[in-house]
């Protein structure tokens, strides 16, 4: 045994100067994020399923309407090309919706208590780690779907288009992650959380412009789709895929007016910020 180990016995005495908050928050956040990635690496089923499901959508739905009369869709695009944007957004959305699950399991199994007993510099590190993890996971999954869509001949947004796609996805992922983390602290257990995820997932997909344009929908559904956050992410991405990378371009003709790319992005930003503000008191209470 080594004998030259320094002692921490006096840790916390007032005289001791505190190391920088940034360094401590970085250390604890990285450690917590690393844990989530180790879990993913050893149980990659979440990653695989998260890519497989949208892939099946893309291939099956794409094939289902492959023979739709040309000229049916606005601009005369093929259905596969149209569907691509929807499935990419759906991929990111589903991944982010699961953000709360690891947190819920930590609550249930008492691992969270281990974190709360530790002298974390900021308990936001716990939330930050989840956000970092789920953001990278959902972006990787979305990129995998984008690559597959490109191989299927559904196109690839070039340069500025790619940047627009990533920014849009990021905003949506932030908003949905906030929602899911809020649910993870508000609901009593993982059964309830999975039930909510299960119920929320598909209706949000159908009541958006992922599978069909607004013009195809009855008036009530058109309204619903026009306030669905997924739509605000799908339309700018669809425009980017169509090679229309202008912030001021009108990408969506909602019943209440025309929306430009900028408007869609602002709505998503406001949604993400609003949701984080909304769940903050809850997190403060649960992590107090």
């Amino acid at each position: 045994m080594t004998s030259a180990t320094p002692s921490y016995a006096s840790a916390g005495t007032p005289a001791e100067q505190e190391p920088s908050a940034f360094a401590e928050i970085r250390q604890e956040t990285l450690a917590l994020t690393r844990r989530l990635f180790l879990q993913l690496q050893r149980r990659p089923s979440t990653l695989v399923a998260g890519v497989l499901q949208p892939l099946i959508w893309l291939i099956l739905f794409g094939a289902l309407f492959a023979n739709a009369p040309t000229g049916l869709l606005p601009g005369g695009e093929s259905y596969g090309r149209f569907l691509g944007a929807g499935v990419i957004v759906f991929t990111a959305f589903s991944a982010a919706l699961n953000a709360g699950l690891p947190v819920m399991f930590d609550r249930e199994f008492g691992f969270l208590n281990r974190l709360l007993v530790a002298p974390l510099r900021s308990r936001s590190s716990i939330v930050l780690a989840s956000v970092l993890y789920i953001t990278s996971l959902s972006l990787v999954q979305s990129l995998a779907i984008m690559a597959t869509a490109a191989l299927l001949g559904y196109g690839w947004p070039g340069g500025a288009g790619l940047l627009l796609v990533l920014v849009t996805l990021l905003l949506l992922v932030f908003a949905v992650t906030a929602l899911s983390l809020g649910l993870a602290f508000a609901l009593p257990g993982h059964i309830e959380l999975i039930a909510v995820i299960f119920v929320a997932n598909l209706p949000l997909l159908f009541a958006s412009t992922a599978l069909a344009p607004l013009a195809f929908m009855p008036a009530w559904l058109r309204w619903l789709a026009s306030i669905n956050p997924l739509t605000f992410a799908i339309e700018p991405i669809r425009a980017a895929y169509a090679g229309q990378v202008s912030l001021s371009a009108v990408v969506m003709e909602a019943p209440y007016g025309s929306l430009t790319t900028t408007t869609c992005l602002l709505i998503l930003t406001a949604l993400a910020a609003g949701l984080f503000l909304l769940i903050r008191p809850l997190l403060d209470r649960k992590l107090a």
């Binding site: 450690a31 879990q39 530790a118």
Partner: peptide, 18 residues
Amino acid sequence: DKILSGRELLQLQGDLYH
């Protein structure tokens, strides 16, 4: 955490205590 090894859990713990 069942997925982590004992050493990884200790490393996590060490980081949480800075």
